[in-house]
């Protein structure tokens, strides 16, 4: 079973602080994204259950994030090969542009029976890229899988739907996103870390994928992704408890919080 796993280089959230409503990324190490590790683990289990095939980690460059180090980590965890799309034009790109680059790389490095993703990235967490890639590649997509089984031609997935669990089957090839409870990602052993340096890493530029800077240019700008700040009224009521309660009720009614 040949599986592509899309991987993003993400900050280690445990070491990140928030100051003035913005993340402090100074000196924070970047690693394989948390949910991407679940996708990678799922891929390795499926590959090993099938008894043959390869797992290819795919990523795109993003500013000065050290994607080659991330790919080494993915190879140490157990991927057989790594594919990198590296182009300065991708630095400013958005989910649509990143999906084009990933789909191009997967198409060129493939064919694959399965394309796996974490349900979202550790930092942006828009969850858009998997569906965009699936659409570009013309694949059926199953989102939020909490378990995966393959019989070769058919893939069975359980999806977390909040209140219920949905079981779906799809013919391969397909695209699947996984949630964190699907597995416990393995920690690479020293031997596997040492072997990772010798595994193949393929690098593409956008031109190799019949793309250019214009194709991946962002089509929209994020002005803010912060939750709206709610101002509090800080009203204090004085007096006897009964009078305070009366005043509070009146205030809540006046605000429309309590009805008549």
């Amino acid at each position: 079973m040949d599986i592509a796993v899309c991987v993003k280089t993400n900050p280690d959230l445990q070491l990140m602080r928030v100051k003035d409503r913005a993340p402090v990324l100074e000196a924070v190490p970047f690693k394989v994204g948390d949910l991407d590790k679940n996708a990678l683990e799922a891929a390795l289990l499926l590959r090993d259950a099938a008894g043959d095939g390869r797992v290819v980690a795919v990523t795109v460059s993003e500013g000065d994030r050290k994607i080659r180090e991330t790919m080494k980590e993915a190879l140490a965890i157990g991927a057989d090969e790594a594919v990198i799309v590296s182009d300065p034009a991708l630095d400013q790109s958005d989910q649509a542009g990143v999906a084009l680059a990933l789909a191009g790389a997967i198409g060129k490095a493939g064919p694959f029976d399965l394309v796996l993703f974490g349900e979202g990235s550790t930092d942006g967490y828009s969850g858009q890229v998997p569906s965009r890639v699936a659409e570009l590649l013309g694949l059926p997509e199953i989102g939020y899988a909490r378990s995966l089984q393959s019989t070769g031609a058919v893939l069975r997935a359980e999806r977390s739907m909040g209140e219920s669990i949905e079981t779906l089957e799809t013919a391969l090839p397909a695209a699947v996103t996984v949630v964190s409870e699907i597995n416990e990602p393995r920690i690479p052993s020293l031997m596997n870390i040492m072997k990772a340096g010798k595994k193949p890493v393929v690098e593409y530029a956008l031109g190799d994928l019949a793309l250019d800077a214009a194709a991946v240019a962002p089509r929209r700008a994020v002005r803010s992704n912060l939750a709206e700040e709610q101002s509090r009224k800080h009203v204090l009521f004085d007096g006897e408890p009964a009078a305070q309660a009366e005043a509070l009720i009146n205030a809540l009614v006046a605000e429309g919080v309590l009805g008549r």
Binding site: E26, A27, P29, K66, E69, I187, L190, I193, M194, G197
Partner: peptide
């Protein structure tokens, strides 16, 4: 600050060809 200085030096060693294994 060591968090910055040491990571910078680790990058220098890596770029020179050393293998820096963390969490080990």
């Amino acid at each position: 600050q060591r968090a910055k200085l040491d990571q910078w030096l680790a990058d220098k060693a890596t770029a020179a060809g050393a293998m820096v294994v963390t969490d080990m």
